[in-house]
């Protein structure tokens, strides 16, 4: 029994049990590997995607519970057409190993959508669920501020 979902603007039909987390639908079924597995218990944020523009942990969202349009890092922007945050990430050279960064960027995109000019405290509050073992936090913070400025100026 297939489940119909919309991912990055495309309708997809997925033939998997409804309790399979969206993370594993994206990665193993749809080959959208930009969304990462880090913990499986919503403790690291590496799997963050958007449902109707709001950040969710895809490891905790069952396929059957997906009730809106899914956007992954691949749908946010591409190397040829970067999202403002991705451009800011490159400007600030934010990533080290890079494994958490898709989730960091998706979380930050959700923050900026709701709060176009976040303070440091707003960034702390929104981003503390996203773990980075390389410790890239100061550059992530700087990149979010940069992207906020770039988006407002546009």
């Amino acid at each position: 029994m297939a489940t119909e979902i919309t991912v990055n603007g495309k309708a997809r039909s997925v033939d998997l049990p409804e309790d399979v987390p969206l993370l594993w639908v994206l990665r193993d079924e749809l080959n959208l590997t930009g969304t990462k597995y880090g913990c499986g218990v919503a403790a690291c944020g590496a799997c963050t995607v958007h449902i109707d523009g709001v950040a969710v942990r895809s490891c905790q969202t069952a396929l059957g519970d997906v009730d809106g349009d899914v956007t992954t890092i691949e749908g946010l922007g591409t190397p040829q057409a970067l999202h403002a945050l991705q451009a800011a990430w490159i400007e600030h050279q934010a990533a080290q190993c890079g494994f958490c960064q898709s989730g960091q960027i998706m979380q930050a995109a959700s923050l900026l959508a709701q709060n176009p000019a976040p303070s440091d405290q707003d960034i702390d509050d929104a981003m503390q669920g996203n773990l980075c073992r390389c410790g890239t936090y100061p550059r992530i913070r700087a990149a979010i501020h940069s992207a906020a400025k770039a988006t407002q100026g546009a």
Partner: peptide, 14 residues
């Protein structure tokens, strides 16, 4: 490796 890592296109083992 920065553009790949900022766009989810960098390939890790997983």
């Amino acid at each position: 490796d920065m553009t790949g890592k900022a766009t989810g296109t960098a390939e890790f083992g997983i």
